[in-house]
Every structure is written in structure tokens, then in C-alpha cells.
Design a protein around this nucleic acid. Structure first.
Lengths: 167, 167
DNA sequence: ATAAACTTTCAATAATTATTGAAAGTTTAG
DNA sequence: CTAAACTTTCAATAATTATTGAAAGTTTAT
């Protein structure tokens, strides 16, 4: 496999994987492109490489900046803006996990808590609803906490021993 | 909040969360409905409750069975088929994690491995591609392994001590 | 101040994905 | 065997989501 083929494969794979971590195709592809680029890229560069429109590029770059994984880079002497992505995978994972937790998981946990807190009127169906949503609430909260803790930790002793334990 | 409202809220929330674990709305809603039901439901029951067509119900039930989280239940004396979902949240999480790993994460890891194994021709861009996809590969593999280990474990001493450590 | 260089916005459109419903298929009771 | 009861399939359609491109907006150099 040659460079160009490998690059295209990486970008399209990572792009389609985007849905797995909750972002759309173009967004994921822009991030991939920046991730393997050796230098900051301009909007023009990105449009050109991915064959997408200016508007699409602009909107998706903004979203990536909202997620905190892409930043503007000012290049002295250049009029236009250049972009880079977080290059460290640990840091990248941290940002993504944090955003997903905040945007999607936490709100769901809140609703599960509300639903599982309804008044028990003694009927079987109410008891079942309470029991099951409570179980789901506890699971979601544990999973969310674990994910954040694991991903937020620098590679300190806790993480290292964790990895040893379960790998 | 009354039973009916709580129930509707749960089903629609869990339904829209479906995308987070990679399944579509109808599929997630059917699963939710079964999850809080005190008895197995027929296709008719599900159509009625969720106001969706027979075809849609049939297809999504099949997918849920493919995922291993819904099973057919034969009720003596009844002609039609009844359905139940896995009621234990741990077991549910196990099934979902296993399927997602198999269907989406493992194939991506494979591609990352391939891409990161291309021949180093000495150019900066090739070196960067190899370095970054390798880092991503290692991260994805670690995350996948951790997820599966955590979720597959019964609540044994390892899991318990893990939870104590990081909670 | 103004014009060129660049970015953002957003209504229109395209592409994708989900849903329907009726015909075809299957199973079971008599 | 065959008719009723039920399930599955799939082409048509609806709903949703992504993308375009051109007009409006902004910034900077002179």
C-alpha cells in the first residue's frame, strides 16, 4: 500500500467511524486530514483535498473548534486562517469523552433519574418502570464516571495499575 | 410525574439515545418498551404502543434478535409470537458492547493496523501518517480491550476493586 | 475610506436513512 | 388439503440530515 492509498483509506475509515463518536462524516474527515498533516492547513487546502464546498468546510471547522479538538493557527505574513487538530491521541480522547459526556450522556442520566423517581403507586408496571430505569441510571452513571476518570487521568499510577489489572 | 408520562419520556429518551450505541430510533424504542414491560409483548402490542407499522416492527425486532438482546417467547395456547428483552442491565451492556466491538471497532482497528504498517519511504508525511495511525491503533485497541474486560467480568474482585479505585 | 481577501450564513437541493403497507410467504388448526 | 392467522419482504415514499453556492459579513492593507 502506497502513501496516497493509505491516506485515503485512513480518512474514509475514520470519517465513517465518526458516527461512532457522534460527529458527522465531513467533520470526521476534516479532523483526520489535519491529524496526519505535517503542517497547518487553510480552508482552501481542506476543500481541495476532501472535495467539499467552502460552506461545508467552514461549518464543520467551527463544530470541531466547539468540540475543542481543532484550533486556529495564525501564520505570520498570511492573510487567511490555518487550522490544526490536537495531535496527541490521549488528549484527543479526553476532549471527545468530555464533550460526549456533557452533551449526551449527562442529560440522559438526568432523565433516567427523574423517571426512576416517580411515585410508587404500588402497581406492578410502576414498580417495574422504577426498578429498570433505576438500574439503567446506576449503570449509566458508573460507565460515565469510569470513562471520564480513565480518560482524564494522566498516565499516573492508578491508570497504570488499572491497565495491568485488566489487560 | 405520572406513570404514563414517565413511561413515554423513558421510551423517547432511550430511543433518541439509540444512536449513541449505534442502533436506530425504532429499534431502541422497541427495546425500551420491552425493557419496562412486565410481560412478553406481541408484534400487535408493539405496533399499537409505538404507533409504527407492521413491517417496521418486524424488521427491527429481527435486528434486536441479531444483536442478541431480544428473544422470542412462546406462550402456550397462543398462535402469535411474543417478545422479551434481556432484563439485566449488566447482561444488556455486555451484549451491546460485544456487538459494537465486533461490528464496528474491530474492523476499524484492523484498518488502522494496515495503514500504520505501510512502508516508510523516509518522507515526513509518510512518517507522520505512520506515527499517528499507530498511536490511534494502540489507543483503540486498549479502549476496546478495556471495555470488553470491564463489561464481561461478573462483579468479581477485580471489577469491584477497579470501581473502588476510580470512582 | 474603500477595495480586495477572506469567512460565515442560510435557503435551496441532494443524499441518505427510516417507514409504510400490501403482496408474498409460512405455519398451524381442522 | 386448505383456509385462517400470522410474519416477512421490499418497492415506494416520507422524513431526516448533509451539502452546496452565492450573498452577506468581516477584516486588513493601503
Amino acid at each position: 500500500m502506497e502513501y496516497q492509498e493509505a491516506k485515503d483509506k485512513f480518512i474514509s475509515t475514520w470519517g465513517s467511524l465518526g458516527t461512532l463518536w457522534g460527529i458527522n462524516k465531513a467533520m470526521a474527515q476534516i479532523q483526520s486530514l489535519l491529524f496526519i498533516s505535517t503542517k497547518p492547513l487553510s480552508m482552501e487546502d481542506i476543500m481541495e483535498e476532501l472535495k467539499i464546498s467552502r460552506g461545508n468546510t467552514s461549518m464543520n471547522l467551527r463544530q470541531l473548534m466547539d468540540w475543542g479538538i481543532v484550533t486556529k493557527e495564525l501564520i505570520p505574513g498570511e492573510r487567511k486562517e490555518f487550522f490544526t487538530t490536537e495531535k496527541d491521541v490521549q488528549e484527543l480522547a479526553r476532549h471527545i469523552a468530555k464533550e460526549r459526556s456533557r452533551r449526551e450522556i449527562k442529560p440522559v442520566i438526568k432523565i433516567l433519574k427523574d423517571v426512576s423517581s416517580i411515585k410508587d403507586d404500588g402497581t406492578a408496571k410502576t414498580k417495574e418502570l422504577i426498578k429498570q430505569t433505576k438500574a439503567l441510571h446506576d449503570l449509566a452513571e458508573t460507565a460515565d464516571t469510569m470513562m471520564n476518570k480513565i480518560v482524564n487521568q494522566e498516565q499516573n499510577w492508578i491508570t497504570k495499575s488499572l491497565l495491568k489489572l485488566i489487560k
